[in-house]
Design a binder for these strands. Structure first.
Lengths: 235, 235
DNA sequence: CGGTGGATTGAGCTCAATCAAGCAGCGTGG
DNA sequence: CCACGCTGCTTGATTGAGCTCAATCCACCG
């Protein structure tokens, strides 16, 4: 339906594209659905497809040799995933798993390459997106190395709220289907620590917990928790 | 001197460039020297220059708001730094500090842009390099989140040995001017933990410590330490 | 030689992982 | 409709890895 087409405009990868090119993309796309718990691709597989998420939630994880994994990224609707790998022509570095039922548009690598030949700016935009994500990861790396579990959890909530928060009368609702375990994998802590911390914050009245969701009441307070004592916020 | 020119060939960013383009790069380069402890640039500054390290060592760090920093990358001779930022036209995300006295070649951003217009593959190579570093960081992120300090230190040594190790009769010598503190900032531990761990390993005979250097005697053993204990769940 | 800054080592302590129950929301089937 | 079970969440108790502080020690410099 043309609603999907309109959503393509919101995809950062495509914002610079002229309408004709966008139409071309749309025409060569293939709709792909995925049930919750299924995988779009696994890490180290050849990157043959790129995806744009229309509806649902996807989590991208990196699995270690001994089984423990980390959650590198959550994909929200109107975001691309697997695109950088497909464009640069390498393997997927991460595993992409549907957290809920998902609707996506998918492109074969060769089709993308053909379109890129006509619209090289697509590759350039992909470059910029990759660099941006790279930098976010650098920041998270520093946080993981130097900050306390509590600070990291606070930051994770703020990021999620920023990325996919729904404004409600009582505050910001994060309604991704995120378990405590997922939150732990994002922040490099344990599920128990996440649970304890969130419970404490609920007792302090600065948020409300639900199963797989969090309602942030006092965002400002959360920011002060995320930033180490002293020093003004931001970054 | 033309020795420098020959070294440009070894720079991954330039390997795909035809000789004429390389000559063009060389001609528009400006030699820049830096004393130990001085800074090429600081994070969040506008990226106006890109560099290639000819001689010496550079460390790239990310500083947090409260002062603690992490060491993201060590630059060895014939590697570029600041290039991705300059090409993509953003700020430097990291601070680049000369660990030893350094000789570099430097380019102004506008000159690079001009050359890229003639040789677009330069941008493409930069893209691939950025993606590759991105992935390395993802791996380190997972390690930091899930593995023990000992494992991370072992891995850091292996990476350094791989990047800048000098083969000796007695083993691999890592002779970067790396303090224990630097190693700690690479691995997200404290200088004390690094010292203790290396001392223990020296007692075990699998390496030899020196001031700002390490001689790896038993590389295989180090690899088994870096990989988590084999747990065969067969009973 | 003495000084300076890195490196080592010990002691104590803290944060957060782990283990172990128990609880609560939700879907399912009887 | 309720009982049940599944799964995710909470919470207490315990433990230990690794941080911190502090006191040397030692290599290399002038």
């Amino acid at each position: 339906m043309s609603n999907d087409f309109r959503n393509l405009r919101k995809v950062k990868l495509f914002t610079e594209l002229p309408t004709t090119a966008l139409q071309l993309m749309y025409d060569s796309a293939r709709p792909v659905q995925m049930e919750a718990g299924c995988f779009f691709f696994h890490q180290n597989e050849r990157a043959e497809m790129m995806y744009v998420l229309l509806d649902g939630q996807v989590k991208m994880t990196l699995l270690g040799p001994e089984g423990r994994q980390v959650l590198i990224r959550i994909v929200a609707p109107c975001e691309d995933f697997g695109a950088v790998s497909a464009i640069v022509g390498s393997d997927y570095p991460l595993t992409a798993e549907a957290v809920t039922r998902c609707r996506t548009l998918a492109w074969e690598q060769k089709d993308i390459m053909r379109i890129i030949d006509s619209y090289p700016m697509l590759r350039e935009t992909a470059f910029q997106i990759a660099v941006k994500r790279f930098r976010q990861l650098q920041k998270r790396f520093r946080e993981l190395a130097t900050e306390s579990a509590e600070q990291r959890i606070a930051r994770a909530l703020l990021r999620l709220s920023n990325q996919a928060g729904l404004p409600k009368t009582e505050g910001m609702l994060i309604d991704l289907a995120l378990s405590r375990g997922d939150l732990a994998e994002m922040t490099g802590t344990s599920l128990y620590t996440v649970s304890r911390t969130l419970s404490q914050w609920e007792r302090d009245g600065l948020l409300k917990n639900g199963r797989g969701k969090v309602l942030i009441r006092d965002c400002a307070q959360l920011i002060t928790l995320a930033t180490p004592p002293e020093n003004p916020p931001f970054n």
